[in-house]
Design a protein around this nucleic acid. Structure first.
Lengths: 206, 206
DNA sequence: CGGGTTATTTGAACAATGTTCAAATGGATA
DNA sequence: TATCCATTTGAACATTGTTCAAATAACCCG
């Protein structure tokens, strides 16, 4: 049996269209936010009918989730590329990389955090797993810094620190309220990590 | 001229209806989230027509904003009631009170943070002022704890700490991902504040 | 190449929901 | 009671997600 299937014309067009649809949707979310995304706009921008969007994605949520999945993937790649030799510098690097990604793709990240499934359907498990895996990138340096602590505690601590940093960045970038100036925000994040590490007896007092 | 105006039957009915509409809307948001709020449901629950809701509030945003304003007012009252004798205990108390209010009224607080105006209209200034004033409650103990620092720096620090705590609580309560158990969350918040204060040389190392 | 078969695409129609406004209603007033 | 005007009403409209039967296009085989 031939495993390597020849790609038919149908499949190629289908794949091209799918990529185009995702790209169009991502651009719209990235520039004007999740709430500005409309099926009809996506369809007309991709030069196809409304029905074709439904053919490719089960429903509106399906399209959003696909964009969000790719966003998590990109974030994961950025965070995974942070140098990890020294665990302290690793933590500072992760925080700064998260800030950088958030600043550059604020609407995409907000889409990830703000999106709620229609009709109280459950959040898809695979995306949850992806998010958890990205969370876990913060876990590694914390384990190295606190080798004697209960690993469960350390996991909670890592998640707590991520949530705190996320709060600082997310509210700091919110233009609706008075946004924190970018330089100040960068300083705040670094200061938060440093203060936290000092408080945990990992860095010396200043 | 008579300043104390006799309340006419018209006015009384109008005020009663207004209160009822707000109450109905708040209950709906509190129990099922902002997205579940529908004009028609509110109208029928208040036993009046759709148009009457529009008569009382300019539009849908107007109703939501009214509920959100009251939420900020209630939060402000709760936080203002926290004992403020010792600034360190004051900070712990504020964090715990915020956690308590958030836990009890999660959907109402999410409504406050998630709501976006229709058509990119600006966020109303009076509500922004209310939120800022509530933020400022955290400011006072920080000033007492860091009397020698630049007040502008302290203000940024206070906002940073609020944002961090908000992130910890908000993501911690999110059931969509794996929610942090309530007791664990309470511990995390207290631990965050303590670590932060130690790192800022305000509390001794443990 | 042609005809049959199957997959895909299309867009009109539907459902849900925020919004408007002319007519009806009802409280105030003389 | 009669007139006047504020308020209320709900039908109609606009937007937007969703469905599905008909049209179209790709594939396959003789």
């Amino acid at each position: 049996m031939n495993i390597v299937q020849e790609e038919s014309l149908r499949d190629r067009k289908k794949n091209e269209r799918r990529e185009l649809l995702i790209e169009v949707a991502r651009r719209q979310i990235a520039s004007n936010g999740l709430r500005s995304l409309k099926i009809r706009d996506v369809a007309s921008a991709a030069d196809c009918s409304i029905g074709s969007v439904y053919n490719e994605f089960d429903d509106f949520d399906g399209l959003i989730l696909t964009v969000n999945r790719e966003t998590v993937g990109r974030l994961d790649a950025v965070l995974a590329a942070v140098p990890d030799q020294d665990p302290v510098q690793h933590l500072f690097g992760l925080a700064d990389a998260y800030l950088g990604f958030f600043t550059e793709h604020a609407h995409l990240l907000w889409s990830l955090f703000e999106h709620r499934m229609e009709n109280d359907r459950p959040f898809p498990d695979d995306l949850l797993q992806m998010v958890m895996r990205t969370f876990a990138l913060m876990h590694a340096p914390m384990v190295r810094l606190l080798p004697d602590r209960d690993p469960v505690e350390v996991a909670l601590l890592a998640r707590m620190m991520f949530s705190a940093a996320h709060g600082i960045i997310s509210l700091g970038l919110e233009a609706r309220m008075v946004a924190v100036p970018p330089d100040s925000l960068r300083f705040q994040v670094a200061q938060f990590v440093e203060t936290q590490l000092i408080g945990m007896n990992i860095l010396p007092r200043r």
